[in-house]
Computed example of a mutant assay.
Amino acid sequence: MPVLPPFSASPPSPDSSASPPAGVVAALRAAGCVFAEEEAELILTGARTPGELAVLVERRVAGFPLEQVLGWAGFHGLRIAVEPGVFVPRRRTEFLVDQAVARSPAASVVVDLCCGSGAVGVALAAALGPVELHAADIDPAAVRCARRNVVPRGGTVHEGDLFAALPGSLRGRVDILAANVPYVPTGEVGLLPPEARDHEPLVALDGGADGLDILRRVTAEAPDWLAPGGCLLVETSERQAPQALATFARAGLTAHLAVSEDLNANVVTGTKD
């Protein structure tokens, strides 16, 4: 771990035009942070004292995701609270939010399944206006973090395994079911960047032997929970997309694949007729 020089001044305020201390930038760059100067500026705005600044830099140098170091992630124009050990929302998942809004702009009941921090549900609520919002995750740490984001939007967060976490009153009423399921094949988890592999929960990454185990479970039950015309949306890889489409069709959903080359995002949508 690079050794940081002692800090002789308090971190600048967020509106300061001062450049980040050279020692901070050098430490981040030595740790392999490609955007070291930009990251240093973000860390500086979150540090209230030189000691806190040193701790934040040391955590980033140790490989913690920047969002976990800062305590927040930018997602779909919002600032989402992120805690250590919780899956960090990816920018490519903004495409799933956009697809959901485009397909169901009048949605009134939204469920964010495998919610992690609750970023998808919160972004949907922000884009759609007043909705009945529910989020669920099996990981207690994710549920705790999601409550920080979802409850202020008037939503409810549930802890449990997929649909078992949801109140039965939602059955047949869900307009948008967003399920950002884990889809990394078990044998490829070890190939992920250390930030994800070492600092995010395995349950949020590992999708089973072919990466589609959780997708299949969600798809099998989704029709019972969707309202007529309601849609299920999942993110998957380009390689897995044909199998995901076939899985949706077998469940009786009208399936569609949307691709964003800019975000390297693949979203499968299934609509209940």
Rank of each mutant, 00 (worst) to 15 (best):
G74Y: 11
G211Y: 07
L233F: 13
A179S: 12
A126C: 03
V151H: 04
Q243H: 11
L70P: 11
N264H: 13
S104G: 14
T45L: 01
A106E: 13
L253T: 07
L253V: 09
P2K: 15
C115I: 04
V189N: 13
G229I: 08
S104V: 11
R197Q: 03
G77L: 03
V259H: 15
A222H: 02
V61H: 04
L177K: 09
D175G: 14
A73W: 00
L42I: 06
D262V: 11
R48H: 12
S16V: 06
S237T: 15
T236D: 01
L53Q: 02
E38M: 10
E38N: 04
R29Y: 09
K272P: 12
F163A: 00
L245Y: 06
I138L: 14
R250H: 09
I176A: 06
R48Q: 09
V57L: 00
A27T: 07
F7H: 06
G51M: 09
P130W: 15
G121T: 12
G129R: 13
D262W: 15
G23W: 01
H199N: 13
E38L: 15
P20H: 13
A196M: 11
R173A: 05
E132W: 15
Q99E: 11
V267F: 00
I176E: 10
V69I: 10
A54H: 00
A31K: 13
L257Y: 10
V34F: 15
G63D: 01
E38F: 10
T254D: 12
F64I: 09
D175Q: 12
L128I: 02
F35D: 10
A126T: 06
L232K: 05
I80S: 05
N180A: 08
A141H: 14
P242Q: 03
S169R: 15
V88C: 12
S169G: 14
R29W: 04
V181G: 06
L202K: 09
V131R: 06
A222K: 00
E235Y: 04
V34G: 03
E132A: 15
D262L: 15
P194G: 10
V101I: 14
P6Y: 00
I214N: 00
L128V: 00
A54K: 12
S19I: 09
L124G: 01
R153C: 15
L215C: 14
V234R: 14
A123F: 07
G187F: 10
A31G: 06
P21L: 00
H256C: 02
N266R: 15
V143P: 07
L191A: 14
R173E: 04
T269A: 14
G63N: 12
Q243K: 04
P140D: 12
G46W: 08
A127W: 01
P21V: 05
Q68K: 10
L191I: 03
S260T: 08
T93W: 08
V3F: 05
E67K: 09
L56F: 02
N266E: 03
G74Q: 14
T269K: 04
H158G: 03
P20I: 04
A142F: 06
L170S: 10
S117C: 10
A54T: 11
L170I: 11
A100E: 07
P14M: 12
G46P: 03
G270M: 06
A136S: 09
D213R: 04
